[in-house]
């Protein structure tokens, strides 16, 4: 069974409203880890707004969330110029790249959270679209 949501938002204050749509699926798929997964989705949306749209509310951020049989896929696309995601990536195992968050700036903090929680974090070449994937709790 696949359930998908296509959501457009231009302001992170709308996250509080749109989360009502996907929250039950997060609880069902991730149990106690729901908070971490939800915080990661919010983080990716916040990043798109802050860095992609420079906190403007003139453009939409497109959020696509699919709850598939064994995993959740989230795609977040902004209309900005993209960012240089490569500087946050270690050439080795991303899961073990984890500086103390208090020593890095806010954008870095968000990406580190995403790296720790998600099974997959990918950016497109331009850096204005990210793909998050996480297997459900019972699929690990």
């Amino acid at each position: 069974m696949k359930t998908s949501f296509d959501l457009n938002i231009n302001n992170p204050q709308q996250i509080r409203e749109i989360r009502k749509r996907y929250y039950p699926h997060l609880v069902q798929g991730f149990g106690m880890d729901q908070l971490l997964v939800e915080a990661s989705i919010s983080e990716a949306i916040l990043n798109a707004w802050k860095h992609g749209h420079r906190q403007s509310t003139d453009k939409d951020i497109r959020v696509h969330i699919s709850f598939m049989k064994t995993r959740m896929l989230v795609r977040i696309n902004d209309q900005g110029d993209g960012f240089d995601w490569r500087r946050y990536h270690s050439p080795n195992d991303l899961k073990h790249w984890f500086p103390r968050l208090e020593h890095i700036d806010e954008p870095g903090r968000g990406i580190v959270l995403l790296l720790r929680v998600m099974d997959v974090l990918r950016y497109n070449e331009k850096g204005n679209e990210c793909l998050l994937m996480k297997k459900y709790q019972n699929q690990e």
Binding site: L36, E102, V112
Partner: peptide
């Protein structure tokens, strides 16, 4: 709660 504490732990800010 446990999940909130985990968020702090995971982001390594608990010792603050």
């Amino acid at each position: 709660s446990k999940p909130i504490r985990e968020l702090f732990d995971l982001t390594k800010i608990s010792p603050n």
